[in-house]
Write a protein that binds this DNA or RNA. Structure first.
Lengths: 233, 233
DNA sequence: AAGTGGTCTAGACCACTCC
DNA sequence: GAGTGGTCTAGACCACTTG
């Protein structure tokens, strides 16, 4: 049993998936389990991994389907809207929260303000072609952007608002990338299955003078999105 | 049951973990399950997620332990050895394969050669402080680097060999980042538990003239490593 | 109402580590 | 041999979608 049974099932299931077209429905789990001669748990483990790998997609009450290839987003200080449009996809946003709260120690440090100072919080679900792919939470110091709430259309581009209306000039930024498991709340907002691996990005943007502009926490569905970075020597 | 039981268990287990120090052992799964009043499956699901999140670490036959914080590696064209040393960690490598094989269509395209042309393959496990954290497979065209096999110490820095001995000058490169589930072989080489989310990086490096130097596939343990990128406007 | 995926249980056996 | 995590089974019920 050096190779787990569910992995053997996974490799055999991959062949089935490759024989089907994008969006095609798989047989129900219970049927597949019987066909492969394994328990439903083993079958689900194989399916679960193919979902995490972005090869399959499950919808409760409907079935399991062959997924479309992952999107590749640029890892750069560009507008989400423009990046998606450039690849021929349709972007959209949905505002979850747009409020103010006092900065905790970590956030205050990233924004270069004192702990407890008020910050704007803008939390939005990002869509591509109608599918939720990411949950983006942006924090900006109220002191630095006192008019933000009045000026910004929260369904529009924050990047564009900052540069065009508020005269911000973006300099270098820093981004941290890691994998995490989404919380139930995050999974629900992203309409993703529970316990799915996600890509968590933490960005700190600075202006040309090196002053912090924003702190961003972006959680992207690991089964739907990848990122591209340009490396310089 | 809108919030799964295993998630409730997870959040309560986090409190337990935070009350322990790094490296401390948790009670056995069967004991924890009884204490929390859930089945072992539910308990394992909670533990499994905390392992993926990098909070816990399981060793078969030994127990489950509180993990150390994730390493943060730079997403840049620098030597793995130097990057780790700069953070005060001890790097090491172990050669798995160092051979030649004909390029398939995808690899040939990335390296700018014809399909079927021979390429060097160097596959190594990367260690930090004695722990395996990544599996790196590098492909280079034999035609371009015919002396590589004779010149390179496969346990040393490939980056250094290319720049110092073979006169290569690195220009811009491109890196793709995504999450995947490791195969049993990869999990075993990385001494990781099965079905653990990993960070998969695909790099194509070019010289200052824009010619491809290497194609690299790096698989990093998602529970042990994160990456940092510098963003430019 | 029927059928789908999602969660959970109780119990079994395997594989590994340490005594 | 004892104790640990790892895999697997059979079966149950829940939650959601569609007819």
């Amino acid at each position: 049993m050096s190779v787990p049974l569910h992995y053997v099932v996974k490799t055999r299931l991959v062949e089935v998936v490759e024989g089907l077209g994008e969006g095609a429905a798989l047989p129900p789990e219970r049927v597949l389990a019987k066909e492969f001669g394994v328990s439903r748990w083993t079958m689900r483990q194989a399916i679960r991994e193919l979902i995490a790998d972005g090869r399959l997609r499950a919808r409760q009450g409907q079935g399991t389907f062959v997924a479309t290839p992952k999107l590749v987003q640029p890892l750069a200080l560009v507008s989400y809207t423009e990046a998606l449009r450039a690849q021929g996809h349709t972007p959209a946003r949905e505002v979850v929260e747009f409020d103010e709260l006092p900065a905790d120690a970590v956030l205050a440090d990233r924004l270069g303000i004192a702990e407890g100072e008020p910050v704007h919080r803008l939390e939005r679900v990002l869509f591509a072609d109608g599918q939720p792919i990411g949950l983006e939470t942006t924090y900006l110091a109220v002191e630095r952007f006192p008019t933000l709430k009045a000026v910004l259309d929260p369904t529009g581009s924050l990047y564009r608002c900052l540069t065009d209306q508020l005269g911000v000039r973006f300099g270098e930024g820093e981004e941290l990338v890691e994998t995490v498991i989404a919380t139930p709340r995050e999974a629900e907002l992203l309409k993703a299955t529970q316990s799915l691996p996600m890509l968590l990005l933490h960005r700190t943007s600075r202006d040309t003078a090196g002053r912090p502009i924003e702190a961003v926490r972006s959680l992207y569905r690991g089964d739907r999105v990848g990122f591209r970075a340009t490396l310089r020597p």
